[in-house]
Design a binder for these strands. Sequence first.
DNA 1: TTAACATTTCGATTATCATCGAAGTATGAA
DNA 2: TTCATACTTCGATGATAATCGAAATGTTAA
Lengths: 226, 226
Amino acid sequence: MSPDLTKVVSILNDSSRAAILDALMDGKPHPASELALVAKIKPQTASFHLTKMLDIGIIDVERHGRHRYYKLINKEVAELIESLYSVSPQSKPKSFNQVHEYKQIHYARTCYDHLAGYAGVQVTNALSQNGVLEKQSLDFVVTKSGVDFFKSLDIDVDLQQSKRRSFARCCLDWSEREHHLAGALGNSLLESMFNRNWIRRIPKTRAIEVTVEGKREMNELLSIEL
Amino acid sequence: MSPDLTKVVSILNDSSRAAILDALMDGKPHPASELALVAKIKPQTASFHLTKMLDIGIIDVERHGRHRYYKLINKEVAELIESLYSVSPQSKPKSFNQVHEYKQIHYARTCYDHLAGYAGVQVTNALSQNGVLEKQSLDFVVTKSGVDFFKSLDIDVDLQQSKRRSFARCCLDWSEREHHLAGALGNSLLESMFNRNWIRRIPKTRAIEVTVEGKREMNELLSIEL
DNA sequence: TTAACATTTCGATTATCATCGAAGTATGAA
DNA sequence: TTCATACTTCGATGATAATCGAAATGTTAA
């Protein structure tokens, strides 16, 4: 069951909540105090917004000791928000620092639990061009040779396919306005890239940097220039 | 220059404005009094909303005598609104009458100045399958044989292509969640279908009905069952 | 137990905004 | 001119909602 658009739209209509959701777009749990900080509001106000978002069912809480960790309820919500942003470009950044962040987040970032941004779209397109994936409506299917490709990255395609969650969805990238790979396969690929030290999280943001090693390996494997 | 998402979102967040915009989605000019009527608000209130939408630049006015005709400023805005609706299904209709309207509008409607809904998507898909169009990212290109096909409907592809406005865009259909044909070519096709009496406007709505003649001809031409 | 901390609930304040009555402007008709 | 119509502007009202101080709850650490 997908979330109600009008509710999500009214939630997104407030700048504090938009900031909170942006922080949650990495798919990981964040404590309430941190979310208050990024939205530049007092903890009470953040709590007010968080219960509101809990009520309409787009986020979830886990209690650990005196902390409460909030996260997006599922990847459908992440994709809905991502696609809402993709329909129109966001406002231009102002300060020097903003320009830097803007570049980072456009280059590579996590979208829920898979890779997005320029790098995410480049990788996805390369996988299509090299005959690993084939786009089929709004999903990808893995080709025969694709199974071997993923095996070389320690990803068991059959295992991923058997999981309950959707396997290999197209997710609309707001910065590139093209599709990138999402779903269980997209997540496995992201994890594999972390394990191989091809990519690294940039602290305090959901931006990602591609290591020198990662650029070399991916150039060799997929003929892409990152 | 595409409209600012956050502004459009905040505009769409009000039910009166949503009703007005829905009425304007047929791309044609409507007098202010009519818009007040469909939104079930007093003329002053409608005027308030209309000036607001004028300010952010998503609608336009034409004065004819004592009337003022409002319309969407361009098809980009129509497509933005259409795609905002497509990311999540709208609420279920209640009354018998609503169910009827719901069915009509899902079956076929105008989206700005091209054909949308089940019929619109069917026609677009058939054009792809019959080798008339090819999807290329978020646009369509007309094949060699496609040029002849359109000529048989009195549409000069070269002429349409030379126009300033975008030629053959993919527009995301909110009811079918698939792409249909938009742009100058989509508009020409709609006009041609009206001229041939294949389709007809259903008064007071932006719903469209396909005539018996239209069903027969399109079945013959494109092998689709409408 | 006590103190510090994370978070929420409550209550008050303030800001924003949709709504509509009343009055004003412009146009067309008689 | 005079009246009706279409629409807008102005001003008041009421509803909604974001914000935060104060106080309460619960949790950890000493």
